[in-house]
Amino acid sequence: MTFSPDLTETLLRPLLRTDPHRPRLTWYGGEPAGRTELSTASLANWAAKTAGLLTDELGVAPGAGVRVLGLRSWQVLPAALGSWWAGLALDLSAAGAGFADAVFAAPDADPEVVAALVDESDPDTVLALSTHPLALPAGDLPPGARDYSIAVRAHADRFPGVPVEPTATVLQADGPLGGDAATVADVIERARALAAGWGAQPRVLAELGVTVRTTAELVAAAVAALAVDGSLVVVDPASGHAAGTVGADEQITVSHPF
């Protein structure tokens, strides 16, 4: 049987070779309001730690399902990339496909949905994401959930990746990357189509609740930027940051990802 590199390996490996220090994710928001910036190498380190947490500690097997709920945390992107690096299928659809083998929940996730998932699972598999710019613990957690920022620290900064079958589903999502079961090749093709016309090494601005409204849209904007050697700048207006000011400061070249 033929296997292919996982989605995160496909996205990050070329970027790590060419420019590991270039910013790839810049996030304005959080509590307290601040600025978080992850280079290619830092983003890869966070994704590797997440993949290690999922596989080595939680025992989630390749091909299993993972859900990410909410979007108001910069840790959403390491959670998504780490899940793909572990060879898992990420469910970002609004309805979801039932309980997954692991769940990442940002603070703005629907508490009833999170509570239902905790009730049906081993509590260790529900991980609460933090909004703190320096990745301090999340604080108040949903009952039965673990703190992702604490759980992920013990794991290695590198991960070998998990090759996947070319026909394996790696993404189920509403919105820009499509709603059907997508393979690695599907996601890359759709991401590059989204980024058509963005130019070389684009700096893409995403304003939460304005130009990006769902987890699926946030992940799509990030994947599209990475697929064309670009970077994503996210602004959460709830934190008091103004998109216009951030856009000027960060030399934004694409002000609306979709």
Results as ranks from 00 to 15, higher is better:
Thr2Gly: 06
Phe3Arg: 07
Glu9Gln: 10
Arg13Thr: 14
Arg22Asn: 00
Arg22Ile: 12
Pro23Asn: 01
Leu25Asp: 00
Thr26Cys: 11
Arg35Glu: 06
Glu37His: 07
Leu43Gln: 09
Leu43Glu: 00
Ala44Cys: 10
Ala47Pro: 05
Thr50Lys: 04
Thr50Asn: 14
Leu53Arg: 04
Glu57Val: 04
Glu57Gln: 15
Val60Cys: 05
Val60Gln: 04
Pro62Cys: 07
Arg67Pro: 00
Val68Ser: 06
Trp74Gln: 15
Gln75Ser: 09
Val76Asn: 03
Pro78Asp: 09
Ala79Ile: 08
Leu81Tyr: 11
Leu81Arg: 05
Gly82Phe: 00
Trp85Ile: 05
Leu90Asn: 04
Leu92Cys: 05
Ser93Lys: 02
Ala94Thr: 12
Ala94Cys: 02
Ala95Tyr: 04
Ala109Leu: 12
Ala115His: 04
Ser121Ala: 14
Pro123Arg: 05
Asp124Ser: 04
Val126Gly: 00
Ala128Leu: 13
Thr131Pro: 06
Pro137Ile: 00
Ala138Asp: 00
Ala138Gln: 07
Ala145Asp: 07
Ser149Lys: 04
Ala151Gln: 10
Ala156Ser: 10
Asp157Lys: 11
Arg158Met: 10
Phe159Met: 08
Phe159Lys: 08
Pro160Glu: 09
Pro163Glu: 03
Pro163His: 06
Pro166Glu: 06
Thr167Ala: 14
Leu171Lys: 04
Ala173Thr: 02
Ala173Phe: 07
Pro176His: 03
Leu177Asp: 02
Gly178Trp: 08
Ala182Phe: 06
Val184Trp: 05
Ala185Leu: 06
Asp186Ser: 03
Gln201Leu: 15
Arg203Val: 15
Val204Asn: 04
Ala206Val: 12
Glu207Ala: 11
Glu207Val: 15
Glu207Thr: 15
Gly209Ser: 10
Arg213His: 01
Leu218Pro: 13
Ala221Ser: 05
Ala222Met: 11
Ala225Met: 11
Leu226Arg: 09
Gly230Arg: 11
Gly230Asp: 06
Gly230Ser: 13
Val235Trp: 00
Asp236Ser: 07
Gly240Tyr: 08
Gly240Ser: 13
Ala242Asp: 13
Ala243Val: 15
Ile252Gly: 02
Thr253Glu: 05
Ser255Asn: 06
Pro257Gln: 11
